[in-house]
Design a protein around this nucleic acid. Sequence first.
DNA 1: TGGTAGTTGTGAAAACAGTAACAGCGTTAC
DNA 2: GTAACGCTGTTACTGTTTTCACAACTACCA
Lengths: 210, 210
Amino acid sequence: MIPDKTVERLSLYRWLLEGRVEPGTVHLFSHQLASMACVTPAQVRRDLMAIGYTGSPNKGYRVKDLSKSIGRVIDGDEPAQVALVGMGNLGRAIVSFLRGRRSALKVVATFDSDATKAGRMISGCMCYPQGKIEEVIEEKRISVAILTVPAEAAQKVADRVVEAGVRGILNYAPVPLRVPEWVFLENRDVTAALEKVAYFARQSAEGKSR
Amino acid sequence: MIPDKTVERLSLYRWLLEGRVEPGTVHLFSHQLASMACVTPAQVRRDLMAIGYTGSPNKGYRVKDLSKSIGRVIDGDEPAQVALVGMGNLGRAIVSFLRGRRSALKVVATFDSDATKAGRMISGCMCYPQGKIEEVIEEKRISVAILTVPAEAAQKVADRVVEAGVRGILNYAPVPLRVPEWVFLENRDVTAALEKVAYFARQSAEGKSR
DNA sequence: TGGTAGTTGTGAAAACAGTAACAGCGTTAC
DNA sequence: GTAACGCTGTTACTGTTTTCACAACTACCA
């Protein structure tokens, strides 16, 4: 099993390889990729070891091959289907952001509790009423859910999508979620992140003045 | 120095203490707080050890005291001033989300490259043209910046806010940033997070079927 | 042909994060 | 009064992630 952090970096490496290298570049050294990703060369080599990709000494890694190898590991055979629940400001922003990116991941359904949004295309994606969560998730074989609902609703929505078969949740609601241990959960609380940044910013400022 | 992850959890604990406990609760045990935060009691005790707060055996922690203690450590004496650069969909969503939350942190300025947005209040916050970044950051003593700009612009904006005195950056642009080692950087790439969740969701599904 | 420079892959060590275990101490029960 | 209970604070342990360091390898050059 590939560790958490490594998967995140692999995703970044691939993105860099697909369009951020000098056009025409065939080979790439670990220190070049490291420099682009702002990590150490050793880190890059260890990450690539995790997916079993192997370059050649004195030549480095083949850009195309590497990018494909990462894709095979991260995306698997068929791309995952994604749903987003909660078409508020944040939800709409994320949907339209994701639409603009090439990715194996496609948001194929969105949900909102506001019935007036139901049945319409919003930000380029069909929006269903929340009552249809189970039905649509099962029908479209959705395995990943993004939650951008208010704190009060988050746990209930999480329970429902899990019950319907979702295996991974990306949670933007500022509340901890209780999910079965076989569901992967990633929390992205904006406030917590901001408070963390502010804390370390202050530490840095104090260290400097001292 | 308090570790990264601990600060994030402390922020969560405080939020839970301020409004998620039964009204009238004076004392709280580590296992109760742990249950609310979805972590282990040992984790809670260890985190509180980091800030030097001490409860009493057989009574637990005083809700009010603990909440204040966490505040003293995380917020410090005066609240940090925050700026947000890039008032696209995501930027506006984050600003209005943060406005709705009680927090020591205040977004006191936003910036956008679109000149027609300049000088107006957007999502309840004054929006300045990007040319004024240095001026406003210095004048308002802003120490934290949230970046919600397109990938191409991110590094340039980061350089400018750092030059102007910012000590912490919360980066939503999907590109790694190069900053001096005394600037705290937190990346929140949506795509990377989603690909990670999808990867582990797939792992979980395969493990189950096997 | 042999030497050199420069890279990869990986074992070993270090740093970091989380868990378990337990001594110590109020509180309560009797 | 004192024994038992249940919780905290802390130390020791376990597991994970990152860094270090170097043998092995390839291409190139003289």
